[in-house]
Design a protein around this nucleic acid. Sequence first.
RNA 1: GGUCCCGUGGCCGAGCGGUUAGGCAGUGGUCUGCAAAACCAUCUACAGCGGUUCGAAUCCGCUCGGGACCUCCA
Length: 488
Amino acid sequence: MNFNKKQLTIYNSLEGKKVLFNPIKDGFVGLYVCGPTVYNKVHLGNCRTFISFDMVYRYLLHLGYKVRYVRNITDVGHLVDDSDQGEDKILKKARLEKIEPMEVVQQYTLDFHKVMNDFNCLSPNIEPTATGHIMEQIEMIRVIIDNGFAYESNGSVYFDVEKYNRKQNYGELSGRKIEDLISNTRELDGQTEKRGPFDFAIWKKASSEHIMKWRSPWGFGFPGWHLECSAMSTKYLGDEFDIHGGGMDLKFPHHECEIAQAMASNGKKPVRYWMHGNMLTLNGKKMSKSIDNSILPGELFSGENDFMDKPFDPMVVRFFMMQAHYRSTLDFTSEALSAAEKGYHRLLNTINEIENLPTNVDSSESVLKIVKSFYDAMNDDFNTPVLIANIFEAVKYINSVKKGDETISSSDRQLLKEEMSTFLFYVLGLKDSNLKSEDRLSPVMDLLLQLREEARNNKDWKTSDKIRDGLASIGITIKDSKNGSSWD
RNA sequence: GGUCCCGUGGCCGAGCGGUUAGGCAGUGGUCUGCAAAACCAUCUACAGCGGUUCGAAUCCGCUCGGGACCUCCA
């Protein structure tokens, strides 16, 4: 298909509007997404961001770009709070559970990967860890100090935000002015090491009993949270790269700090297109670990939670998320998920029937136009809800062809099948997790349906209903139609 | 308090100045031994009040309500 990939528009947080996407190097895209801090199981809200950017990655690939997708694992440096004695999240967890910090990291990294796999997310090309890039981070700190934008204080190194702001614009991404920030800030205890209230640690001194620490020019310590992303994105994607993604809540201060660090070290704006996914809400409030308003993916899949009436398949959850735009908040309710579940199954049923459609010399609808509507939706800042609406329009057409009210040519049938599969399975990253895929069950079911058919022909309703109701009780639905029976 | 976003029919959710979004539910039909499933058709909107415009869900102002960030968060 020669649908022009040059028509892709992306909402750039830096400019506050949709702009045409032009990669730095023609045909190649550098994509960096802030990954999880592995001190806990990922909750569903975290997952939404990664699923959104998985979709972005997939669509860029589909457009033919060679994408280098980097998503980090934060395994050190993420502090519980911003005071001088702010504790490392991983270390705190290790202390509470009385295990090694790296055991914490290992445990939750594995959990994260499992969940990403459940949601059918593609792996990034590179998944770097903060602890694996200590040298790069130390080097970046040295450069920032040399350039005069950071200072050492009592074994820690802080980024001098006010000094930076005199030369550059701190706050350009989040639309903040440093004067407003200062006048509105509340006094935090224990910030004596910092020159300014918004200075942030790029290196933290470690006490003697601290387990996770490395030797540096400033003594033993560990790197600050914001720094890892700058160091690793620079290392793998260069001083300037195309797309940086993350959750809305990272916009300030995390991403703001990333820009400042990069500018302070090499004078270049690191990122062309900043993309921010919106929050998931539960009971109308942001899903968040810190306010105890969250649900774990596993709890959603198993049904063991206080929020939902029943379990939901990961693909249903993914489909539900794709029915909302990535920049909109999405409210999770049992009712809404159930609605998505029905719609999703209907979609799968129809797509499985395309190849059996009767063909004609001509098509009564322009399949090309339908396919174009898929691309138009995605090119408009990855508008997946509109894409899905357009796919449902195609479903209506397919059913009309099946009924005989509309026609489709053999080549169009092939095209429609390919494009619908591509968008549904490849771009949106869904998959058909039906029982049908279990090969051994299929012949057994054929046999049962045959027996029931014979009973029905003999008007032996007792036997036929026994088969139907028995199957229903174990979750298999018999679907009778003119052309015989099938199951789901 | 500061900065910003949002308020769409029973529920979810698109829409970015003029044409049916879409899904689920509801209603009516087709099909059927009964049913289920499937399919078709179809009803409920744009928080309120002003303004701009030939024309506003869409732009502007105010009011009310909700949310995010400003402190760790995807």
